[in-house]
Design a protein around this nucleic acid. Structure first.
Length: 859
RNA sequence: GGGCGCAUAGCUCAGUUGGUUAGAGCACCGCCCUUACAAGGCGGGUGUCGGGGGUUCGAGUCCCUCUGCGCCCACCA
C-alpha cells in the first residue's frame, strides 16, 4: 500500500462526484469490453433496450441498477463484461408521436415522394386533416423524431452511472437490427418455422392491425345479456338464446348446444330462423357449449369470440363476416339475407360502428317483439389490445406467424424444457414462463399492419389481373439486407412491374416489435456483421428484465434462439420487480403517479438513489421510498469521513501486519462478509450483498474504529499502532471494493485518495487470506461491554468522555478472555481505569462512574 | 376456474439448510459539541411473527387448512 494520501480533501463531499468520475471513466475506457477475451472469460449481458422517447422512469433506475451491480461484480472478478445497450425505437409509440407532431398519416399504397416535407413540426392545428404519405416518407419522418429523443435520453441513462460500454449502442430500428431481424425471419421461413395463414384474427379496429396473444389483456367491461327468440322451422315455437352481442345477429351461421343436453337433443339437425333477418341456420351439437350458461344454447356468429372461431372451424361452418377492418358493418347487404324484411333490417345497420349497430339492432328487435324482457346488465371479461381503447374484433386476414409451440406439442415441450434449463432469479418466476407457454393457444402472430418497424422482407407474384399470389414468394438475397420491399424490387423484376399484372408487390406489413427485440443478443452481439464478437459473447450470461414481459421479450427470445441455434440465448434470467408508489400501486405514466428520477439524482446523488434501488430484493415489487435514499446519502458521507479518518493515521511500515487479537478478529469477520457477499452476488442477490457489507461497515465505524483509534495514534507503542493501522487499511481497502458495485461514485472517490487506478478495475476481495486470521467470537462480548459502558454514561446523562472508575464484568471464561485480550483498547475507548473480571453464567457488566464527573456543569 | 407471490415493531423490510431472550433502518424519545463525521455520535421503548391445526426435544422457518392483499394465466354465448 503506497503512501500517497495527499489527495484527501479537507472537507470530503459527495457534490460533483458524478460529473468528475463519469468523465474520467469515459476517458479511461474503464468499462470498455475487452474483445480479446474468449467466451469463458466473458460475462455478457442482454440489457433491456428502453424506449428512448419520453423521460427516464424510476423503474429504469431501479432495474438498471440491479444489473449494474452484477456487472461490476463480475468485472472485478476478472471477467471481461459485455454490457451493451440499445434504444427500442421501432413501433407504434413512435408512429403515434410522429402523427401528432407532423400532421401526416401513413398510406402504404402511395409511392415514395423524394421531395416531400412535413407540413408541421410540433403544433398541428386541431382541424388539420392528416396528409397521407408513403411508407418510406413516413419512416423517414419517424427517424428524425427518434434521433432527437435518443440524444437526450442517452444523457439521462449515463447519469445513472451504469457501467455500459457505449461503443456498442444499437437501436431496434437501425440498419443492423433490421438486418438481423430480417435474416432471422428468412431463416425461420426457410426452415418452415415462419408461415402465413389467412384466418380469423384478433384485430384492433383503431390501430388497424392484428395483435398477438402476448399483447392482449382481458378487461372487465359492462355488457348485457339480451334474450332473443329464434323461430323453429317446424313452427313449433321459439328457441331462446342469451347473447351479449346482438349486433352480430346478421353474422349468425348456426346454433349450438351440448350433445348431452336433453332439452335440445331433439332439435339437432333441424333448422331455425334468426330473428329480424330471417336467415335459416342449423342447430348443432358441440361439447364446448355449456348447458348452464344462458339458456344452454348459443348462436354462433362469425366472429364474436374465439369460441366462435373454434366452432366455425370444427363444425365446418360458412363464413358470414360483416365486421370490417374499421370495425364497421359491411355496407352491402349480404347475400345470405334473402327475405325482404331481413334486407330492410340490414340496411339500417349498414356501415355502423359496433355500439351503434347494437343500439339499432336492439331497437329493431324490441319493435318486432323478438327480444324478451330488458337486457340484463353483467360485467364480463373482454379481450383488448394492451394499449387499445376498444375491444378487439375478429377479422379474417392473411398474417405471418412464427411457430412457438402454441399449435405443436413437440415444440411446446421443447420450449418448456428450455425454461427448465434457464436459471431464474428468483426461481419462482419460472412459473410464469410455464404458465404462459402451457397456455398458448396459437402461434406467434408477427405481422403488423403498421409502418415504422422492420418490414417483412418479401414480395409476392401478381397474376394476370394484378392479384397477389401469396404462395409465390420472392425473397431477397442475404447480402441485400436490410430491405424495404416497398422501395426495392425482387431479383429479375424492375420497379415498373410493381403492382402491375404478372408483376410483383411487396409485403406491406412490418414485424411485431417483439420479433425484432427478441433478437437483441444478436443485434448487440454482432451476429451477422461481427461473427468474431458473436462467438465471444453468445450465448450470453444474463438477461435482466421485468416480470411483465416474460411472455413477450423473454419467451420470444427463447423461441428465436431455439429455432436459430438450438440453445438458450442466455443462461440466467434476472427478473426485477416494479416500483410501487407508497399506496402500493404500480407506478406508471397513465396513473400519473410517477416521480422524475432526475430530480432525485440531483437531490440525493446517484449513489444514494442506487442504494435505494439495490435494497429492493430481486423480483420483488418495491415501494418507492425517499427515506432509503437519505440513508444511502448518509452511507456515502460516512464512507468519505471514515476513509479520511483511517487514512489520517498514516500508513504502517511496509512489513507491518495485524498482530493484536482484536485486529485479527475484525479481519476474520470481514472474511465472512466477503464470503457472503460473493455468494450472494454470484446468485444475483445484490440486495443481500449490500446489506452484509453495510452492516459490517457500520459496526467497523461504531465499534472497531472507536476501540482502536487511540492505539492507532500510538498510545500503546509503535508495534501496537502498526498492527492497528495495518488492519484498518486492510479493512478499508476491502470495504471500498465491496461497496464499489453499489456506490460506484463514492467508492471511486475514496479509492482515488490512496490507490492507483479505478476501484472498478480492481480485483474483488478474497476472503481466503483472512479467514483463519482470528477468532470472530471475540468481537461479540467486546462490543457488548463497550455498549454497556456507553449506556451507563448515557443513562447518567454524562458525556461519553466521562471516566469509568471501575468496570466489573462477570461472564463465562470465553467472554472474560475476549475482554482481557482487548483490555487496553476497551479501557481507552471507554475511559476505564480499573477492570474487575469474575466468572459467571452470563455476561453482566457493572459500570461505576467516577464521582468527579458525575456532576453536570451548568451551560 | 388454474397458478404464483406476499402477510414479522407505527412505517419499509431482513431473518440463507428449523436451534438460545425475533433483528435492521426510518419514525419517536433522551443524552452528548468525544480531537473523522452535529445534514453527526451514543443510548432507549415498542412484536398474539395474519388465524387455526399438525410434525419435532425445539417452528417466524417444515406440512395441512382458513383469511386478506397483489400479480400471472384461462374459450369472455
Amino acid at each position: 500500500m503506497s503512501e500517497h494520501t495527499k489527495n484527501i480533501p479537507e472537507t470530503p463531499s459527495l457534490d460533483g462526484v458524478e460529473a468528475r468520475w463519469m468523465q474520467r471513466w469515459e476517458a479511461d475506457g474503464t468499462y470498455r469490453f475487452d474483445r480479446t477475451a474468449t467466451r469463458d472469460q466473458v460475462f455478457a449481458i442482454d440489457t433491456p433496450p428502453p424506449t428512448a422517447s419520453g423521460s427516464l422512469h424510476i423503474g429504469h433506475v431501479f432495474s438498471y441498477t440491479h444489473t449494474d451491480t452484477v456487472a461490476r461484480f463480475h468485472r472485478m472478478r476478472g471477467k471481461s463484461v459485455f454490457y451493451p445497450i440499445g434504444w427500442d425505437d421501432n413501433g407504434l409509440a413512435t408512429e403515434r408521436r410522429v402523427q401528432n407532431v407532423t400532421g401526416v398519416r401513413c398510406d402504404p399504397t402511395l409511392p415514395f415522394d423524394p421531395d416531400f416535407a412535413a407540413p408541421f413540426n410540433g403544433d398541428v392545428p386541431k382541424d388539420h386533416r392528416a396528409i397521407p404519405v408513403s411508407r418510406p416518407n413516413f419512416v423517414s419522418l419517424c427517424h428524425g423524431v427518434i434521433h432527437a429523443d435518443e440524444v437526450v435520453f442517452e444523457q439521462l441513462v449515463r447519469r445513472l452511472g451504469i457501467s455500459i460500454d457505449w461503443s456498442f449502442l444499437y437501436t431496434t430500428v437501425g440498419p443492423r437490427a433490421q438486418r438481423v431481424s430480417q435474416l432471422a425471419f428468412l431463416h425461420n421461413l426457410a426452415r418452415g418455422e415462419a408461415y402465413q395463414q389467412d384466418a380469423p384474427t384478433l384485430y384492433d379496429i383503431d390501430e388497424r392491425t392484428a395483435v398477438a396473444q402476448a399483447e392482449m389483456e382481458d378487461r372487465d367491461v359492462p355488457g348485457a345479456y339480451h334474450k332473443l327468440a329464434f323461430h323453429r322451422s317446424d313452427g313449433a315455437g321459439d328457441l331462446l338464446i342469451d347473447t351479449t352481442r346482438p349486433e352480430l345477429l346478421a353474422s349468425c351461421v348456426a346454433m349450438v348446444a351440448h350433445p348431452d343436453d336433453a332439452r335440445y337433443q331433439p332439435l339437432f339437425g333441424s333448422t331455425v330462423r334468426t330473428p329480424l333477418f330471417e336467415v335459416e341456420v342449423p342447430v348443432l351439437a358441440h361439447h364446448l357449449a355449456e348447458p348452464d350458461k344462458g339458456t344452454g344454447i348459443a348462436m354462433i356468429c362469425t366472429f364474436g369470440d374465439t369460441t366462435d372461431v373454434t366452432w366455425w372451424r370444427e363444425l365446418n361452418l360458412q363464413s358470414r363476416a360483416l365486421i370490417g377492418f374499421d370495425g364497421r358493418m359491411a355496407i352491402e347487404t349480404p347475400e345470405w339475407i334473402t327475405e325482404p324484411a331481413g334486407r330492410v333490417a340490414y340496411a339500417q345497420v349498414s356501415g355502423l360502428a359496433p355500439k351503434q349497430t347494437q343500439r339499432k339492432i336492439v331497437e329493431l328487435l324490441i319493435e318486432s317483439g323478438e327480444m324478451l324482457g330488458e337486457p340484463r346488465p353483467i360485467s364480463h371479461p373482454v379481450k383488448f389490445y394492451e394499449r387499445g381503447t376498444r375491444p378487439l374484433e375478429i377479422v379474417a386476414t392473411r398474417q405471418w406467424y412464427i411457430r412457438n409451440g402454441g399449435r405443436d406439442e413437440t415444440l411446446r415441450n421443447a420450449l418448456l424444457a428450455r425454461g427448465e434449463e434457464l436459471t431464474w432469479h428468483p426461481a419462482y418466476m419460472h412459473n410464469r414462463y410455464q404458465n404462459w407457454v402451457g397456455g398458448l393457444n396459437g402461434d406467434w402472430l408477427i405481422s403488423r399492419q403498421r409502418f415504422f418497424g422492420v418490414p417483412i422482407p418479401l414480395w409476392y407474384r401478381l397474376d394476370g389481373e394484378a392479384n397477389p399470389l401469396y404462395e409465390e414468394i420472392f425473397t431477397p438475397d442475404e447480402a441485400q439486407l436490410p430491405i424495404d420491399p416497398s422501395v426495392t424490387c425482387p431479383a429479375g423484376f424492375t420497379e415498373d412491374q410493381r403492382g402491375k399484372p404478372d408483376g410483383f408487390v411487396g409485403d406491406p406489413d412490418v414485424m411485431d416489435t417483439w420479433a425484432t427485440s427478441s433478437m437483441t443478443p444478436h443485434i448487440a452481439g454482432g451476429w451477422i456483421d461481427d461473427p468474431d464478437l458473436f462467438a465471444r459473447v453468445f450465448p450470453m450470461d444474463m438477461r435482466p428484465q421485468a416480470h411483465d414481459i416474460i411472455r413477450t421479450w423473454l419467451f420470444g427470445s427463447v423461441v428465436r434462439s431455439h429455432h436459430e441455434h438450438g440453445c438458450l440465448p442466455w443462461s440466467n434470467a434476472a427478473i426485477s420487480g416494479w416500483i410501487l408508489d407508497p399506496d402500493r400501486k404500480k407506478m406508471s405514466k397513465s396513473k400519473g403517479n410517477v416521480v422524475t428520477p432526475i430530480n432525485l439524482l440531483e437531490e440525493y446523488g446517484t449513489d444514494a438513489v442506487r442504494y435505494w434501488a439495490a435494497s429492493g430484493r430481486p423480483g420483488v415489487d418495491t415501494a418507492f421510498d425517499e427515506g432509503q435514499m437519505k440513508i444511502g446519502r448518509k452511507l456515502g458521507t460516512k464512507l468519505l469521513n471514515a476513509t479520511k479518518f483511517v487514512l489520517g493515521f498514516g500508513a504502517p511500515p511496509a512489513d507491518a501486519v495485524p498482530t493484536a487479537a482484536l485486529d485479527r478478529a475484525m479481519l476474520a469477520r470481514l472474511a465472512d462478509v466477503i464470503d457472503e457477499s460473493t455468494r450472494a452476488l454470484d446468485e444475483f442477490d445484490y440486495a443481500r450483498a449490500l446489506e452484509r457489507t453495510e452492516a459490517f461497515f457500520w459496526w467497523f465505524c461504531d465499534d472497531y474504529v472507536e476501540l482502536v483509534k487511540g492505539r492507532a495514534y500510538g498510545t500503546q507503542g509503535d508495534d501496537a499502532a502498526h498492527s492497528a493501522r495495518a488492519a484498518l487499511r486492510q479493512a478499508l481497502d476491502i470495504i471500498h471494493r465491496l461497496f464499489a458495485p453499489f456506490l460506484p461514485f463514492v467508492a471511486e472517490e475514496v479509492w482515488s485518495w490512496w490507490q492507483e487506478g479505478s476501484v472498478h478495475a480492481a480485483s474483488w476481495p478474497d476472503a481466503a487470506p483472512l479467514v483463519s486470521l482470528g477468532d470472530v467470537s471475540l468481537l461479540v462480548p467486546v462490543s457488548e461491554v463497550l455498549a454497556a459502558v456507553r449506556r451507563a454514561k448515557t443513562e447518567a446523562k454524562l458525556s461519553q468522555r466521562a471516566a469509568v472508575e471501575e468496570l466489573t464484568i462477570e461472564g463465562p471464561a470465553s467472554a472474560l478472555a475476549a475482554v482481557e485480550a482487548c483490555r487496553t483498547d476497551l479501557a481507552e475507548a471507554g475511559g476505564v481505569t480499573e477492570f474487575t473480571l469474575s466468572e459467571g453464567p452470563a455476561l453482566m457488566t457493572n459500570v461505576r462512574l467516577a464521582p468527579s464527573t458525575d456532576v453536570r456543569t451548568p451551560h
